[in-house]
Simulated assay, not measured.
Amino acid sequence: MNPTTTGRFRVHDRRPRPLDGGDGPAEFVLVELPEETVDPTDPDATEAYDPLYATATGYEGELAERVETLDPGAVVDATLAWDDGTARFAEVTTVREDRFRFADEIDGMFEAAVDLWRAIRAEGEAVGSVTTRSTDGDPNGALYLFADGPGTDTFAELRSARIPVEPLVARVDETRADDGPREVFVLRPAGHDFVAVYVVFERDGVLARTVRDTYGLGDGLATGLESAGVDRIETADRGRTEPEGNGTPNEPDGDGGTGGEAEPDGDGERDARDDEGTSGFDLTDRL
């Protein structure tokens, strides 16, 4: 009898199995979810979310139908059967329909990410985060940036779950009053040395649809939709040298910072909105 593993898993991605000389059959990248939330700053956090892999083809009957509908991001209760080191689903039931989307070498990047990247570099850090807000000032997403320097492939590490995304989603779930499905975008811009992980709070909200539409990642906003009322990512002007209305750069405020600098919010993240001089970037501008 083959050994089995039963638990709750995140379907992190579906991809061809990497083989020497080419791609193999399709497989799922799975991350087993611990019963207790793991602090992402814990040195053992990476080990807690080690990925494992399950065959995505060769199923029959009702099980085949369930496996076929599994999209990246879904959370499932499953039993995996192991045969010579290869896992297959013996049972699987979807319990939450989050969605993960990956895009590499994208053209353009929204302003909140670029501003945050400038701040990260100025502080000599490799990772940073910011909370984005809608035009009404309501939090609508958590944006994380990871440096992607020479000799590294941070996008590949995130897509393969070798750098875990799960703690970032868990942090959002802990701070939100709702338990609705999220949408997670992992984006690497062609013109910047970072990778963005954007956890959008509402999977089917306007912001998620706008990001999908902007980067060609599935169903988005209808073509020609008026931008009025559409979520915008609000971000502060971080002391730029572009002239304002009076033709002069932004002046520092009383505490030595720029008037539009984002301040940390209650959970220690920078807030992408400041009451004094924010600028909005509309994703429907298509960058």
Score class of each variant (00 low, 15 high):
5 T>Q: 11
1 M>Q: 13
179 D>F: 08
66 R>C: 00
42 D>I: 11
128 G>M: 12
102 F>H: 15
265 D>N: 15
87 A>F: 15
64 A>Q: 12
86 T>Y: 10
266 G>I: 00
73 G>I: 07
175 T>H: 01
129 S>Y: 05
239 G>C: 13
165 V>W: 08
56 A>N: 06
148 D>T: 02
149 G>D: 12
211 V>T: 13
147 A>T: 11
277 G>L: 04
15 R>A: 02
122 A>V: 01
21 G>K: 05
282 D>Q: 05
116 L>F: 04
161 A>C: 03
37 T>M: 05
77 D>S: 14
261 E>K: 02
248 T>D: 10
191 G>E: 15
121 R>W: 08
54 A>T: 08
106 I>Q: 09
145 L>N: 02
14 R>S: 04
7 G>S: 07
83 D>Y: 00
2 N>L: 08
83 D>G: 09
226 E>N: 15
158 L>W: 01
51 P>H: 05
221 L>S: 02
141 G>H: 05
21 G>C: 07
66 R>W: 14
184 V>N: 09
110 F>K: 07
243 P>L: 00
150 P>L: 06
243 P>A: 00
238 R>G: 02
133 R>S: 08
176 R>N: 07
100 F>P: 01
278 T>A: 11
162 R>M: 06
160 S>N: 11
125 E>F: 15
257 G>T: 13
121 R>E: 12
178 D>A: 07
184 V>L: 11
215 Y>S: 06
14 R>G: 04
252 P>W: 00
155 F>L: 10
249 P>S: 12
150 P>C: 02
175 T>R: 09
102 F>V: 06
199 V>S: 02
199 V>N: 01
82 W>Y: 09
14 R>W: 04
251 E>V: 14
2 N>Q: 06
217 L>R: 04
50 D>Q: 10
31 V>F: 01
5 T>P: 00
217 L>E: 03
89 F>P: 11
276 E>M: 03
131 T>L: 07
29 V>E: 04
169 V>K: 00
74 A>M: 15
193 D>E: 15
4 T>I: 12
236 A>D: 07
168 L>W: 13
205 G>K: 10
